[in-house]
């Protein structure tokens, strides 16, 4: 357990903030679409977003809402997708660790890992109920999913970083320099 008595999503957001990422709690599909639209308009001339299918990202209402707002969603699996050309990547998250601000992203589609690696901005959708307090709580869940056949993962704790040059911390080396986590509240009044 983290020392604080904060709900896990607050601990998570605080930890991610320290790492240079940002987490926001959003209520309902409309709010998710709003948040994605704002980021897309700010950072992509064509308001287009590369996404990895699966989990919260597959929500039909979200796709419709984004289309209505003029945001173009392109699946990494779709024919002719050029993942390197996108400024924004959108993925779901299986699990998160509040204490360290970590996202655990598992993938089972071709090229899944590219969506959260190539673009400058990574937007991740996370359910409140998928936030575990610390590594020792999250690891058994991860291991269970792994042993059930989910064999490829990336764990992400904040935007890409280096301190190689003169020990000065620089954000955004090879991976995304912006990490936006939208915490979708699926448990109002629950443990989150």
């Amino acid at each position: 357990m983290p020392a604080s008595a904060q709900p896990y999503h607050e601990t998570f957001a605080a930890a991610l903030g320290v790492l240079g990422g940002r987490a926001r709690r959003v209520r309902g599909g409309r709010a998710v679409a709003d948040a994605i639209e704002i980021i897309a308009r700010q950072h992509s001339d064509s308001a287009s977003v590369l996404y990895e299918p699966g989990g919260l990202v597959d929500d039909v209402a979200l796709h419709l809402a984004l289309r209505a707002r003029g945001v173009k969603l392109v699946s990494v699996e779709s024919a002719g997708a050029q993942p390197a050309a996108f400024e924004i990547g959108l993925t779901s998250v299986e699990l998160a660790i509040a204490q360290s601000g970590t996202l655990l992203i598992g993938g089972d589609v071709g090229g899944w890992g590219l969506v959260a690696a190539l673009p400058r901005i990574h937007i991740a959708l996370l359910r409140t109920s998928d936030i575990e307090p610390d590594l020792s709580a999250a690891f058994p869940r991860f291991e269970r999913a792994f042993s059930h056949g989910q064999r490829n993962w990336v764990w992400v704790s904040g935007p890409s970083k280096t301190a190689d040059i003169a020990m000065q911390l620089v954000t955004g080396v090879h991976g995304p320099n912006m990490l936006e986590v939208l915490i979708v509240d699926d448990q109002p009044g629950g443990r989150g």
Binding site: A15, L19, V76, E77, A81, Q82, P83, A84, I97, Q99, S100, T102, G107, D108, V109, G110, G111, W112, G113, L114, L135, F146, R151, N152, W153, V154, W155, V156, S157, G158, P159, S160, K161, A163, G175
Partner: peptide, 23 residues
């Protein structure tokens, strides 16, 4: 190594993944 709780990235890779890639 660096005083981090976890490093920024931890890749868990089994075989060639699902084989295909748009690249």
């Amino acid at each position: 190594a660096t005083g981090q709780l976890l490093s920024v990235y931890l890749s868990v890779i089994t075989g060639p993944g699902w084989g295909r890639s748009p690249l």
